[in-house]
């Protein structure tokens, strides 16, 4: 349940940052900083028990939302990156705690992971297509 809430928070924060930065053209820094600031104020107020964790997740996802449109062309890409951020956050909760930049590193790893998966899938599809074209077909086989 907690993991699901963390992933959902990551998706909302990541997508919000992406939309503010790209659709509203406010720039990645203002988008991420405003999402971070708002989540830092709102989450501890509305979720007294899990608020601290959720605000950190939201900040982490907002760093992922700073990805450029070239690397994440659609909202689906951003949703996938945010989901990976949420999952990675739960897995690495105790690693390098207290080191500034840890959340950004999680965001960067998530971006690289999704870009890698997407590129691999594209390459595999292309290879399958070219393989199908190269197969000899016809009555002479």
């Amino acid at each position: 349940m907690n993991t699901l809430l963390i992933i959902c928070t990551a998706i909302v924060a990541g997508v919000a940052t992406y939309i503010i930065a790209n659709n509203f053209n406010k720039g990645a820094v203002l988008a991420s900083a405003s999402v971070t600031l708002v989540s830092g104020i709102i989450f501890p107020y509305f979720f007294p028990t899990m608020g601290t964790t959720l605000m950190v997740v939201a900040a982490c996802a907002s760093y992922g939302g700073m990805v450029s449109r070239k690397n994440a062309p659609s909202l689906i890409d951003m949703i996938m990156i945010s989901s990976i951020i949420g999952l990675l956050f739960t897995l690495t909760a105790t690693s390098y705690a207290g080191v500034g930049g840890r959340l950004g590193t999680i965001a960067a790893i998530s971006c690289f992971t999704w870009i890698g998966v997407r590129n691999s899938a594209t390459a595999a599809t292309r290879a399958r297509k070219s393989d199908a074209y190269s197969k000899p077909v016809g009555v002479w086989q």
């Binding site: 990805v67 080191v99 930049g101």
Partner: peptide, 21 residues
């Protein structure tokens, strides 16, 4: 290096924080 990747700044900061430590 890695311009346009979300989290690049955080990774840079983490490296700097660890070097400082």
């Amino acid at each position: 290096v890695y311009a346009g990747i979300g989290g690049k700044g955080g990774t840079t900061a983490a490296a700097a924080a660890l070097v400082t430590k």
